[in-house]
């Protein structure tokens, strides 16, 4: 076992209540010193696996550890402080009436000091080039803008690991480049990253390890 292992999955199986789809006996380790890509056909279970790793879905059997702790002992809020998860549909994780408030409110609720909140929120908005939108109503933004607002909302937590479900789908070429460079910077600071994506160019450029979902619910490791 790698000393940098952050998320460990052992013999995990999963099935949805009313569906044929299943994941069977999956074992894998996700490390903090990698930017890992998770690829596979539509419907192969990438989003499902991502949701299992963040505790949204509960596996039928097997074990999952995040930072050496059994996922069953953590509640979703605690997981959210360790692992940032970007939904495939960013609208699902936007809550407040302005972009600034949306990015900052979890910090407020968790009792971070006002100065630190202001600092962290403003710098993340600037970095993602959405500081000009900070007073806007998030639900009326474009898809690519929403995606970056949602991303800001999870990056502001400064988590040790990130799972991003198709973060590049709505981004233009420049914004993809921007995202890639941001992820590289976070990676150099010690954040582990898993990117679920179909974007081969992006993966080839930024990811050092590629996991591939196969039909019948298996998974293989393919180095680029």
């Amino acid at each position: 076992m790698n000393s940098q292992t952050y998320i460990e999955v052992k013999n995990m199986s999963f099935c949805y209540p009313r569906s044929q789809f299943r994941l069977e006996d999956i074992s894998l380790q996700l490390n903090r010193n990698d930017i890992t890509a998770l690829v596979g056909e539509n419907g192969s279970g990438k989003t499902t696996l991502g949701k299992i790793l963040t505790g949204i879905l509960k596996p039928a059997s097997g074990e999952i550890q995040i930072g050496k702790k059994d996922i069953k002992t953590l509640d979703l809020g605690e997981i959210g402080k360790k692992v940032g998860y970007l939904f495939q549909n960013p609208e699902k994780q936007i809550f407040a009436a302005s972009v600034y408030e949306d990015v900052s409110f979890p910090l407020e609720i968790n009792g971070v000091s006002p100065e630190a909140i202001k600092d962290r929120t403003e710098s993340i908005l600037k970095e993602l080039e959405i500081d000009h939108l900070k007073d806007k109503y998030p639900f009326n933004l474009s898809h690519g803008e929403k995606q970056r607002v949602a991303l800001a909302g999870i990056l502001v937590n400064e988590t040790e690991y990130l799972i991003l479900d198709e973060p590049t789908t709505a981004l233009d070429t420049d914004r993809k480049e921007l995202l890639g460079r941001m992820l590289q910077k976070l990676h150099s600071q010690g954040t582990g990253i898993l990117i679920i994506s179909h974007d081969e160019i992006f993966i080839n450029k930024f990811c050092g390890r590629v996991l591939k979902m196969k039909q019948k619910g298996g998974i293989t490791d393919e180095k680029v």
Binding site: D75, G77, G80, Y85, F87, Q93, F95, I109, N157
Partner: peptide, 17 residues
């Protein structure tokens, strides 16, 4: 329900608030 899950995952711990 979904919205509540997503909200908690933003790192909001509901205990002791």
């Amino acid at each position: 329900k979904d919205s509540f899950t997503a909200l908690k995952l933003r790192g909001v711990v509901l205990k002791n608030i």
